Computed example of a mutant assay.
Amino acid sequence: MFIQDDNGTCYMRECRCRYDRQITNKLKSAKVPLDFIDATVSSFKTDIYKMQESQERAKTAKEVAIKYVNNYREFKDLGKGLYLFSEAKGSGKTRLAVSILSALIKKYDIRGLYISSTDLLHEIKKTFDDSKYSAYEIIQQFTEAQLLVVDDFGVEKTTDWSEEMFTKILDDRMNYKRPTIITSNIEINQLSKKYRAGRIESRIEKMTFPVPLPEESVRSYLAQQENERIAEFIFSF
């Protein structure tokens, strides 16, 4: 941008749009879902939940998320992430986790990665048939990301192999103190019922701070609000 100040001095300044494009590219590289590309921690709505208990839980979760972002360096030194859990589908777990990831990419220029647990296993399995990457190279992506967000942990079909893969990834991340954010519909102390070898629960307990989300789905509420805005737009002509 060409700038001229009050004294008549002229100079050039980098356009803000270049920075915005860089951030957008980083978010895409982190595989942030398009639905949440503009989501922020501050815009996480707590009053959309209908039950009072849900609103209180949402407020607490939002406060934890804000403090995590603002104090990320301290959490990073501890290798500590977050474990966002709620049995209810559509309770805001993914939205809040992705918002934290986006905020950290923007604020600290970290190299982050978002993936669901089922897609993580699928990416590794693809290398068994035909892939330009080896299984080791794919696993490296998950172990070496400065921040890894694993979504819907526990919904995948559990096998000895899948448990072994998760254990390997969590082990490496724990040993090198790389923070991990996990969303799940299972409480940490119930993970051994699904992962029977018992190694997953202890690692996640060490690596993350548990954050309960409301046991209430807001997905339908948000869809209804969106449809109402569309209807207002359509019938305003």
Rank of each mutant, 00 (worst) to 15 (best):
D5W: 04
G8A: 09
K28P: 01
K31Q: 14
V32N: 05
F44R: 13
F44E: 11
T46Q: 01
T46V: 01
M51Q: 05
Q52P: 04
T60S: 08
K62M: 06
K62A: 02
V69L: 02
N70C: 09
D77I: 02
D77T: 05
K89V: 13
K93I: 07
T94G: 12
R95K: 08
L96Y: 02
L96S: 10
A103T: 00
A103I: 02
I105V: 12
K106M: 14
I115Q: 07
D119T: 09
T127M: 10
D129E: 15
S134K: 11
Y136L: 08
E137N: 10
I139L: 15
E144G: 00
L147T: 06
L147C: 07
V150R: 03
G154M: 13
G154D: 12
T158V: 15
D160P: 12
W161L: 10
E163L: 07
E163C: 01
M165D: 01
F166S: 03
D172L: 12
N175P: 00
K177T: 06
T180L: 07
I181Q: 00
I182D: 03
T183P: 03
Q190H: 14
K193S: 12
A197T: 09
E201T: 09
R203Q: 13
E205T: 15
P212D: 05
P212C: 03
L213D: 00
S217W: 02
L222Y: 04
Q225S: 03
E226K: 12
I230S: 03
F235W: 10
F235R: 12
